[in-house]
Design a protein around this nucleic acid. Structure first.
Lengths: 212, 212
DNA sequence: CTTTGTGAAGTGATTCACAGCA
DNA sequence: TGCTGTGAATCACTTCACAAAG
């Protein structure tokens, strides 16, 4: 009754917002405090009209004759993109790649906080890697629910990836980043992001990672 | 004079072909040898008409009344997607994440062969990790050219990522997968894939990884 | 004068629906 | 009968162009 949508937002708009966000972050570091859609267009690689249209789906952030205030627009985009808060994450599979990702600072920088890791190797259970405690896989459901974890990173061998993903979904997780191949479809509306090197060169071009 | 295009192929078609390819791989493992666009639609999550349209941009692979032969279509897609041959890859930054990726078997499975690694730490130069020789970063240009390497994986700290990417481009590399944040635009027509955790949940949805 | 925000126009992508083949 | 391949129709997205605001 109340939540009425105004306009149809194109599917690719949110992706472009993330590009604008990154461009603005760079501009802010360079000390630029205001920018026009025309100038942002040069940096972000989308047309000025496109940028203005994308932004006005969410509000009026600019001022005619002046352009957009970098810090203000950036913070608006943080809210729109949902990166204005922390996301709690669990990592399953504390192998070589798993441990590297636990140590990888990039996640934390983007407000993804890894709260727990899981493995079925008794050697690893109870230990900490990069400050993250490893639990046994049997405890997945319990720990994920009690810590209210929202997202899972899957770095287990391909053979078991599908089972792990099913377990994560059962535990109520809302998004998954998988480094193993998975069947394309999980029905429950869960998004599985698959990190999967594909090709983006010589005229060929498809997404290296995609989401369904 | 000779290379005349027939039809305009939508930008997202190639991405969808990669989804079809993965679905077909699973079907082949399950012993399915023939499938209709309607059934593939169920698995791949795109409409049957969409699937037929996408495929006919590249040829006529099906038979009326019968559908598509899984093994045949799969091999056609391999060719279209450019994954019917090996791609030679260099990895720059033999840190924790770099070594994990060197050990990661997923790349080789997709015909990405890591031919060389680079680091500026004298301790690492000359050593091998997972069978890959580490060279000094000063040798990047020479090694990449002599081994005819086409793609680079960047796992260096964020501060130097931009310089490394510039060097790779100078060395003639055609595609880059970067785990560090980078400015949005590299002009030379090089594709930079940035692995960059973003959000794909609760109505929010943008690409975890994107390419420009 | 500069630049936003936005309806209208134009372009591009998807779905429809069916002729034709197996 | 079953299903592909494809023009035509529909739907979605982007660009144009300009009124209004600073």
């Amino acid at each position: 009754m109340s939540g009425e949508e105004k306009k149809r937002i194109p599917k690719t708009t949110v992706y472009r917002l993330s590009v604008y966000y990154r461009a603005l972050s760079n501009l802010e570091e360079e000390g630029v405090d205001s920018i026009s859609s025309a100038d942002l267009s040069e940096i972000a690689g989308f047309s000025a009209a496109q940028i203005r249209k994308d932004l006005t789906y969410y509000g009026q952030f600019g001022r005619p004759g002046r352009g957009y205030v970098v810090s203000h627009l950036k913070s608006q985009l943080r809210t729109i993109l949902g990166i204005d808060r922390d996301w709690s994450v669990a990592l399953v599979g504390v192998g070589r790649l798993g441990r590297a990702l636990l140590a990888y600072k990039g996640f934390r920088k983007q407000n993804f906080i890894i709260e727990a890791a899981f493995d079925n190797d008794p050697e690893k259970v109870g230990k900490e890697f990069s400050g993250v405690r490893v639990y046994h896989q049997d405890e997945m459901d319990k720990v994920i629910r009690s810590k209210k974890i929202e997202m899972g990173i899957v770095t287990v061998p391909e053979e078991v990836a599908e089972i792990i993903v099913a377990k994560l979904i059962d535990a109520g997780i809302k998004a998954i980043l998988s480094f193993a191949h998975l069947p394309s479809i999980f029905s429950n509306g869960i998004k599985v992001n698959q990190v999967d090197l594909s090709i983006e060169m010589e005229g060929l071009s498809y997404y290296l990672t995609h989401s369904k």
